[in-house]
Simulated scan of single mutants.
Amino acid sequence: MKRNLYILLAALVLVGVALFQNVGPGFAAVFQSESSKELPAETGPKAGLLAPPFSLQGLDGNTYKVGGQQDKAIMINFWASWCDPCKEEAPDLNRLAQKYKDDLVIYGVNVTKFDKVENAKQFVNHFNLTYPVMFDKEGKVNEAYKGVAFPTNVLVDKHGVIQEVILGILPPDQLESKIKKLIK
C-alpha cells in the first residue's frame, strides 16, 4: 500500500515538473513575486516594452525625465493646441492629475514640431493646466513613441514599462478606470 502511494506521489511530481517546463513563462509567472519579475530589455512605443527614455524642459523651467524606475506611474499626453479632442480632454486630465497626484504624474508633451509655442502657451493658460507641460520642439520624443494621432496617451508603470497606448480620447470614466488599474 505504501509502495503504491510513493509511486503515485512520484508520478504527480513528474507531471507537475513537465507542466511547469512545457507550459511556459505564463505558468511560471504565477509563482513569481512582483519583485522577481524581469523587466523587458527592449524599448518601444507599445505595451509590454520599456518606455523610450527622454528628458524635456517644462514650461515652468524644470527638466522632466521619463525612463526607468520612477516613484509614481506616468501618463504621457502628446497633444497640439489646434487639436479639438485635446481641448475636450484637457479639463479631464487636469482633474485626474489632481485626484491621483500621490500615485500618478501626468506629463503634457506639446508636439511643437506640428504646433506653435505661443499657441501652446495660450492652450495651457486657457485650460489652466496644473500638470507639467513640455515642448517637443523637434518632434524627437513624438517620433520615439511613433506618434500618429493627437491626443495620444501613454500609460507607464513605476517600473518604466508601457502598460497601454491610447490613441484619441476616451470617456472620462474609462480613462480613470485605466489609471486606477495602472497605479495598483
Rank of each mutant, 00 (worst) to 15 (best):
D71A: 15
G24L: 12
Q98H: 14
E176Y: 05
A73L: 08
G139S: 07
E138I: 04
G168L: 10
K121A: 05
L182S: 07
Q122W: 00
T152Y: 01
V156S: 11
K101F: 11
N119R: 14
W79I: 11
T43D: 02
N153S: 14
F127N: 06
L39Q: 07
P91R: 10
H159G: 11
L39K: 12
L59H: 09
P85F: 03
V165P: 09
G26K: 15
V109H: 08
Y145K: 04
G24I: 09
L39S: 03
K101Y: 07
R95S: 05
Y100A: 13
Y107K: 05
A90L: 00
G44L: 07
V141G: 10
V23C: 03
L14D: 00
L19G: 15
Q21K: 02
P40V: 04
K101N: 15
L8V: 06
D136L: 02
A41C: 10
K181I: 04
I106K: 08
F20H: 14
G48C: 11
N22W: 08
E89R: 09
A28M: 13
Q70D: 11
V148N: 06
Q57Y: 10
L167H: 11
L175G: 13
A144F: 00
N125F: 07
Q21W: 12
I179G: 00
L93R: 01
L170S: 09
L129Q: 06
D84K: 10
D84H: 08
K113V: 04
I106T: 05
A73T: 11
H126R: 00
E89M: 06
L175D: 04
D115I: 01
I106M: 08
V124K: 10
Q174T: 09
G139Y: 05
Q57V: 14
L8M: 08
Y131C: 06
G16N: 02
R95Q: 12
L129V: 08
V124E: 03
Q69K: 15
R95L: 03
Y107A: 01
F20R: 02
I166H: 05
F78N: 04
K184L: 10
S81L: 05
Y131P: 09
K65F: 12
I76T: 04
N4R: 13
N4Q: 09
N4K: 06
K146Y: 03
A120C: 08
K121W: 02
Y131V: 08
A28I: 10
S35P: 04
A28P: 00
P85K: 03
S55W: 02
R3Q: 06
Q174S: 08
I7D: 03
L14P: 01
G24E: 15
V133G: 00
A80Q: 06
D103T: 07
H159F: 02
P40M: 07
P40E: 09
F31K: 10
G48E: 12
G26P: 01
F31C: 02
S81Q: 07
P171G: 05
Q32F: 04
S35Q: 13
G44Q: 11
D157W: 13
L170C: 03
D92F: 05
N22C: 04
P151V: 01
N110H: 02
I179D: 01
V141I: 13
D102N: 15
A80C: 13
E42N: 14
K101Q: 15
E138G: 14
L129P: 01
K121L: 13
Q122I: 06
E138A: 14
V141A: 07
D136Y: 06
S36T: 15
D157S: 13
G16D: 03
P52Y: 09
G108F: 03
M75R: 07
S33Q: 13
A97L: 05
V30I: 15
A144M: 10
D157I: 12
K180H: 02
